[in-house]
């Protein structure tokens, strides 16, 4: 352990971290209505992981965030994305069959200029969520792995 960041950095991280995560999930969930989407929202959530790593260091964070769990989430996201494409296989691959069907994300879209309804757009919203899960887990795994590798080099230089 090399010591830790100053009290200012730790306090600001504790305050801001939750807001960043909530904003990232907001961008993912509203991908079919507002600018952004799965990729962008996932990157925002992963940047919150990076902030935690900078503030608290690899050793502390590895007790709270399991890298293997993130790996599983990543694979699940990609598989979900592929299988949502198969939902409309009766017409074509990636056919939007859930739209206007009345179920989850299936209420009819109002045509014309309007603020939009969260419960529309069928498979697009589902795919946004799947891609968002994949991207946040993938970038989280990348950041965690590379910081752990940096820690190995530091320990080697000290000894």
């Amino acid at each position: 352990m090399i010591g830790e960041m100053s009290r200012i950095v730790r306090t600001m991280t504790n305050i801001i971290f939750g807001f960043i995560v909530v904003f990232g999930f907001y961008v993912i969930a509203h991908g079919h209505l507002s600018p952004g989407g799965g990729f962008q929202g996932g990157a925002i959530v992963a940047s919150a992981f990076a902030l935690l790593l900078v503030t608290y260091g690899t050793e502390v964070i590895q007790q709270y965030i399991a890298k293997d769990l993130l790996s599983v989430i990543e694979s699940t996201g990609l598989i979900l994305f592929g299988s949502f494409g198969f939902l409309g296989i009766s017409a074509t691959y990636f056919y939007n069959i859930v739209a206007n069907s009345g179920g989850l994300f299936g209420s009819p879209t109002v045509i014309g200029v309007n603020p939009g309804d969260l419960n529309t757009s069928g498979t697009i919203a589902l795919m946004n969520i799947a891609v968002g899960l994949e991207v946040l887990a993938a970038l989280g795994v990348i950041v965690l792995t590379m910081s752990a590798a940096a820690e190995i080099i530091q320990n080697k230089e000290k000894s």
Partner: peptide, 19 residues
Amino acid sequence: QVQASSNNVVTSIVFDYRG
């Protein structure tokens, strides 16, 4: 908006037309 049922045209291209 009619074909992909999404208000965001960019998202409907990314996830529907160019899936």
